[in-house]
């Protein structure tokens, strides 16, 4: 018994050491966000900030972080909303009227596999023609295109778990399509809608290449704002770190939820057959 406790402790120790090594670049960035400019380029570097400061957070917001957060919020939330509005009815049709793992689901999902560098040139030329270059509308269209296949597929997977009898009962009671949607389908598939929505939001929030190529000075999302700091030889790492923490740190809170979701999906997809 005590031997197995010892082994368990050893494994925890190994995991903690690996975890520390893996996360150390991120921890370093976290510490850097609190260092004043003068301390950034010390050689050898200071581990803990000697004169800890919050100035990077206020400056980071002013030099582009604030604009970046606003633009990213606009583009990712609107595109996510459109994905859900277009995707919900399509997913319902796919779940109820087509076999699982059929040709149509596969075709829709395969769009997701395309590397973004392939459509980006086509979009660039098209957007020049349609005056959509460097507009919110343009980027929203592209992010909707990028996320819609996954949203449809995920929602359809969730809806297949809902028993048909609920809808049939509602129809027998004479419910209209809208009532069926509002009172039966939406509440029952809410976890699926939330999951698909969160994923679409994260992907749009993190996206870089489309934003880099398809926008100029009017629309500057977070990843693009951060990348623009790299034009300088010695970027202000403190400001970069501060923006990074504020803009991307909250996503990490979803990590627990995400590993559950992923383990469950892969178990269902591969083990359930």
């Amino acid at each position: 018994m005590s031997r197995s406790v010892f082994h368990e402790a050893l494994r925890h120790l190994a995991l903690l050491l690996i975890l520390f090594a893996v996360l150390s670049p991120l921890l370093w960035l976290l510490l850097t966000a609190f260092k004043p400019y003068g301390e950034l380029f010390n050689n050898p570097p200071t581990i803990l900030p000697e004169a800890a400061t919050l100035v990077n957070f206020t400056e980071g917001w002013e030099i582009g972080g604030g604009k970046g957060i606003m633009d990213s919020l606009i583009v990712s939330s609107i595109s996510t909303l459109i994905c859900l509005i277009l995707g919900f009815p399509a997913a319902y049709a796919l779940a109820r009227r087509f076999p699982p793992h059929g040709q149509l689901s596969f075709t829709i999902l395969s769009l997701r596999m395309m590397p973004p560098i392939v459509p980006v040139i086509g979009f660039y030329l098209l957007f020049q023609e349609l005056a959509l270059f460097d507009t919110y509308t343009g980027l929203i269209i592209v992010y909707t295109f990028m996320n819609l296949p996954l949203v449809i597929w995920l929602l359809a997977e969730f809806m297949r778990q809902i028993p048909k009898s609920y809808e049939e009962a509602a129809r027998v009671d004479g419910a209209t399509w809208f009532q069926l949607f509002r009172d039966v389908l939406l509440p029952l598939s809410l976890p699926g809608v939330l999951t698909a929505g969160i994923l679409a939001m994260i992907f749009a929030w993190n996206e870089f290449l489309f934003a880099l190529v398809l926008t100029g000075d009017a629309v500057i999302t977070l990843p693009k704002a951060l990348a623009s700091f790299f034009l300088f030889q010695q970027p202000n790492w403190g400001q970069l770190g501060a923006i990074g923490i504020v803009a991307f740190g909250p996503l990490l809170l979803l990590s627990y939820y995400m590993q559950r979701l992923l383990i469950r999906s892969f178990s269902i997809e591969l083990g359930g057959r």
Binding site: V22, N206, F208, F248, L252, S255
Partner: peptide, 13 residues
């Protein structure tokens, strides 16, 4: 959850 963090972050970060 903790080991998932690198994948959750934006590639730019």
């Amino acid at each position: 959850s903790l080991f998932l963090i690198p994948m959750m972050l934006a590639p730019i970060i």
